[in-house]
Structure formats: C-alpha cells, structure tokens
Amino acid sequence: MTEKLSMQAIILKLQQYWSAQGCMLMQAYDTEKGAGTMSPYTFLRAIGPEPWNAAYVEPSRRPADGRYGENPNRLYQHHQFQVVMKPSPDNIQELYLNSLRELGIDPLEHDIRFVEDNWENPSMGCAGVGWEVWLDGMEITQFTYFQVVGGMEVDPVTSEVTYGLERLASYVQDVNSVFDLEWADGVKYGDIFKEPEYEHSKYSFEESDQDMLLRHFDEFEAEAKKQIANGLVHPAYDYILKCSHTFNLLDARGAVSVTERAGYLSRIRNMARAVARAFVAERKKRGFPLVKDDKLREKLLADEEAK
C-alpha cells in the first residue's frame, strides 16, 4: 500500500469504479434503516424482472450495537458501500476483486478468501447465498446472491456486494479504532461521530420514550398497510422502514420480550411481503419500463398475465 486513503477518498474511488462498471450512483436513502439492503434501491429493485445496477453509500443504524462511542469497533451507525447488479454478472467476483485493487489492496500482497456465509433477514423475508470476504482474516465485505426477497423468489438474481466502510478503512489506514480514521484531510471520524455515537447510545438504551415508540410502531404499521392497499408502494415502504427502526429502538431499550420480539418481526415480515407484491404489480402496470428488450418485455407482461 503506497498511500493511505481517507474515508471519503475510499468512497470516491468506489463510486468511480462501480460507475465505470455500469452502476448508477444513487444517494443514501433518507429514512432510517439497519442496512443498505433495506434501501428501496436494493430491496424493491431486487424484486421483479427489471434489470438494475446501482451503487451507493448507506449510513446504517443499529441501536443495539451502540457503545457510547467507547468501543473501537462497534457503532450505533456505520456506513456501508452497497453495490447491486441484476442480473448478477458472470464476472462479479472479478469485478469486486478489481475494486480492492483500486483501493490499493493487491491480492498478491494479502490473503483474500471467500468464506461461506448465507445471509438472511427474516424480518424482511429475505434470504441469499454467498460469502463473507476475508482480508488477512478480517471480514470486509458481505457478498450475496439474493434468492428470496420480500418472500418472493427472485428472477433474475441480484448480486449484492456490501463493503463495511469503517472496517475497510481501518485496514487501509492501519488504525485500531474507527474513531482514529481520517474522514477527510485533517478531520477524524471521531471528530464527526463520537458525539452522535454517545448521544444515540444514551438515547437508545436509557432515554427513549417507550410508550411513544410502541404507539408509533402501531401507527406506522397501520399507515403502511393502508398505503399498500392504495397501491402507493413507496410511501408504504417508508412506513415499513420506520416500523423496522422503531422496533430496533424498542429492542435496544430491552422493552421487547422474547415472544413479543417474534411477534413484531412477523408483523414487519408480513408488510414486507405485501409491499413486495404491490411493487411488482405497480411495475407491471407501467409495463416494466427498465426492460429494454421489447420482445422480452412483451413476453414478461404476457407471462405475468398468465399467472
């Protein structure tokens, strides 16, 4: 490694690289979520027959992982760099390895392995097959071929590459604590995020208003269901994301017992399944516009008709 890239330089390099591979550069989605997968740019776009290639940074909130800014590796909010390509290209592994070379990580100077890790997000009705990628023993990327999303079997298959930006940067910059990472010239990760980490941890574990959160969950759920019925897929999906985050806050607060937990997760899963179906229906009404091959599109619309 010759130069130590800053966090933002890493992001810029990844954006440049993946846009050159045909990915649209999307922006982080503006509703709280636990992972880049839950952005509509992945979750919804992975469903249905339309192709989709996108890359974006996603700040991901996991209230239960908050450590008051004291643990060098655990965060309330971390950043994922998300790449989704549908249908999955035949050389997706090679594309990924080349992205590491762009960051100055030469596989010949390291030990890079694809270790089986089948990803599942039961609360969103998602399952996929793939690996975690190890760089000299450290997991830096989750690599997944989606098989089921929102309870629907996918066709075609989306490949998802999720880089853990903090981990990757810790390696590139050779620091032991994420708070010592350089975000930009002269500004450290800790300078920006240490305070929000503390405050969000304090809020999530100690201060959040449980009654309000419980009430919000019910209200968000009702609104999501109503808008699914109205065929307003994206507003409905926003409320499902809000339900998910609200549940995560309740969970971090220890306000959810084991059985209630299963109940909440199943409520979110039911909404995720419903919105997945609604999304395909709405895209079909629009004639699957992202399918550029007219013959294929006509066939798909006819096939969907036949079902």
Binding site: L108, D111, I112, G137, M138
Partner: peptide, 17 residues
C-alpha cells in the same frame, strides 16, 4: 491461500483481527 510472498502483511492483519 498463497505463497509466502509478503507474508508479513498477512501475519500482521490476522494478528490485528
């Protein structure tokens, strides 16, 4: 999974993890 080329990087990375 490789030769001993630049093995010190691999050792250091694994030690860190």
């Amino acid at each position: 999974n490789g030769t001993d080329h630049d093995l010190q990087n691999v050792v250091a990375g694994n030690e860190k993890v």
